[in-house]
């Protein structure tokens, strides 16, 4: 490579870094704006020219948030429903996936699995109203169950766990455990689950994002403020006439932060979880 092409390459790289950094700033900006606005007064939020960097950190939005809204309760509700749906879904999907992967000779295995895959084609929009009606009839409206149970076993989760267990769970190991007198459920619980941990992490994260962020279903099935989850509280804080913007931003930080921290800690698993969705095709 001669000198001219080399410096040309360096130039290209520098330009790429510059463009990438600029775009990264654009992508992160809304987070920055959310975060800084949570420390501003209503007037400071809407001032022109905008205060790019807040002059001092004002905590009153946060104290207002804790005093005037049910945010702690909403946080608790969000944690309960998210943890509930993630754990239930991980348990049932891995159990089903294990069965489909490790009992290939069970009569009907293939046909039942094909059926499971087929259910992925059903759009949620079609089943929305009857599902709501069922919840009304069994008195689950305004309960945690309404957010946890209906979506507990997805076809995709079963597919995902089955693929992983078929590839990573040696039959010899299961046979050995059986000879040692381990029960079938024991094999699942003590051998399959520990080995499938990466797959469980990815699936769990996928479910966590879905349930932590869920607004529409929460809006439909939750009725009293003591049951509201974070997204619903944030949504309802926007008033027709006046919106307490500073407090709203503080609530937004409160809602976003757990997932952002989790994402920064477990970036690899998050990306694996999201990429998992693509295996569907």
């Amino acid at each position: 490579m001669n000198k001219a092409t080399k410096s040309y390459g360096v130039f290209i790289r520098l330009a790429t870094y510059l463009m990438l950094t600029l775009l990264a700033i654009v992508f992160v900006f809304p987070f920055y704006w959310l975060f800084t606005a949570s420390f501003k007064t209503q007037a400071q939020i809407f001032v022109t020219p905008p205060h790019w960097i807040p002059s001092h950190l004002m905590w009153s939005n946060y104290t207002d948030l804790f005093q005037q809204t049910n945010i702690v309760r909403a946080f608790f509700n969000s944690v309960i429903t998210s943890a509930g749906s993630v754990l239930l879904s991980l348990f049932l999907c891995s159990l089903g996936g294990f069965a489909f992967a490790k009992y290939p000779l069970a009569p009907g295995n293939n046909r039942m699995f094909a059926f499971v895959l087929g259910t992925m084609l059903i759009p949620g929009a079609v089943t929305l109203i009857p599902t709501f009606e069922i919840l009304v009839h069994i008195h689950w409206i305004n309960t945690y169950w309404a957010l946890i149970v209906p979506g507990a076993v997805g076809a995709f989760g079963i597919f995902w766990m089955r693929q992983y267990m078929s590839a990573n769970l040696p039959d010899d190991l299961l046979a050995a455990a059986r000879i040692d007198g381990c029960s079938e459920f024991g094999i699942y619980w003590r051998i399959a689950v520990p080995i499938a941990q990466p797959a469980l992490a990815a699936l769990g994260i996928m479910n966590l994002i879905g349930s932590w962020n869920n607004l529409m279903w929460a809006f439909i099935v939750l009725r009293t403020p003591s049951m509201y989850t974070l997204p619903l509280v944030i949504y309802l804080m926007q008033g027709e006439m006046s919106t307490p913007w500073g407090m709203l931003m503080a609530g937004g930080v409160f809602t976003v932060l757990p997932l952002v921290i989790a994402f920064l800690l477990f970036q690899k698993q998050f990306v694996a979880g999201i990429t998992a969705g693509a295996v569907k095709q």
């Binding site: 992508f27 704006w33 959310l34 962020n213 607004l215 944030i234 931003m249 976003v256 920064l264």
Partner: peptide
Amino acid sequence: RAAFFLPAVTPMVVIAVVFSL
């Protein structure tokens, strides 16, 4: 990657509120 991907994991409600600002 984190910068570009972060939006995909954040609650839409919050983001839409920030965008309306």
